[in-house]
Simulated assay, not measured.
Amino acid sequence: MTESRSVVITGASRGLGLASAAHLYRQGWQVVAAMRSVDAGMARLRAKTGAGTGDARLTGVTLDLTDPASVAAAAKAVEQAVGAPYALVHNAGISAAGMVEEAPVSLWERMFATNIFGPVALTKALLPSMRAAGRGRIVMVSSAGGVRGMPATAPYSAVKGALERWGESMAGEVAPFGIGVTILVTGTYDTEIITDAGTTDSRVLDGPYARHHHTMDKRGREAMKRAAKAPDRFAGGLAQALESTKPFVRRSVGPDARMLMIANRLLPGAGMHTLTRLMMGIPRFGALGGTPAASMGAPDPNIQESEENG
């Protein structure tokens, strides 16, 4: 890289955002780290990079994606710090576990506010300066849920699918102004979001879906242990994505994401449904009909929300 370009990374206080901000800083980028908890997040970033408190190449910006005023203030702070950012990376988000019947509507609303509505507002605020500059890249961090809707994570799958359709649409709109869009389909990485602590859990373990949860939880934890990679490996993939000059790119970062994208392209929808059911140990079609589980009342989940990114 011949010049110090600027990048805004949301959710930069932990997980993939923290690893990416540190990696790009070390590569010479001017990094604007957007997060809810700036003091704690910047302390982690400085410890990871060795940057001093007065380093102009590492700036912290307060951002709560569920608060329109915070989004507007963050966009203004970004432009005051770096002018028109070269790149905007939408990384921040929350995860959730639970069946559609179990997850309350309030969780769906919070999921879309954090993963879609807030990022859209931030993009709208920064696009005028990026258009005027005539260059740049917007990166959307997606996941397996954006490729294929996954059982027990419907709200999360829904927002990742929406994120990808938004990115595809926007790519055609901003390409004539020299701005490209990249969708990164991430695999499994060893961050808080794959743990109980980093996930909003609305599962009802003794409800009608108890049999689903018992098998899926066991298999899921085993799969996570085998597949989870270090966040720094994602950061390297993001750095490569930022060098693209194509108007639109959709690519995987991680072997499990790559395999899923290939399978989804080759297999028909019914085939992917069956493959997913077998991998997760979900009972076959009609297996629970007429059982006590089928006649149980609606689940009454006890929700405690948490966020992976600050």
Rank of each mutant, 00 (worst) to 15 (best):
G145T: 03
E164L: 03
V8Y: 05
A51S: 04
E101R: 09
T199A: 09
V61G: 05
L288E: 15
E173N: 00
G180R: 07
A69G: 00
G15D: 08
Q27D: 14
M259W: 12
M1C: 09
R284D: 12
L88A: 10
I194L: 09
F234V: 13
P176Q: 01
G93S: 10
S252I: 04
R284M: 03
A73S: 13
D232Q: 14
D256R: 05
M140I: 10
A263C: 06
M216W: 01
S129T: 12
A223H: 07
A125W: 01
L267Q: 05
I193S: 15
R258T: 14
R219N: 13
P176T: 01
G161H: 14
V89W: 08
A21Q: 08
F234D: 10
R57Y: 00
A22S: 15
M279E: 06
D196M: 02
G50I: 13
L58P: 06
A293G: 03
F117H: 12
A21D: 08
T291W: 06
D232G: 13
D232L: 09
M259L: 15
R148L: 12
Q304A: 14
R203C: 13
R265C: 06
R265D: 12
E109S: 12
A103L: 10
R36Q: 12
V139N: 02
V32Q: 05
A12K: 10
Q240L: 14
A144K: 00
G237Q: 11
S70C: 02
H213R: 02
G15N: 07
P68F: 02
N91I: 06
R203L: 02
P247M: 12
R219V: 10
G41R: 01
A84W: 10
N91T: 09
A81C: 06
S295E: 11
G167L: 08
L45A: 05
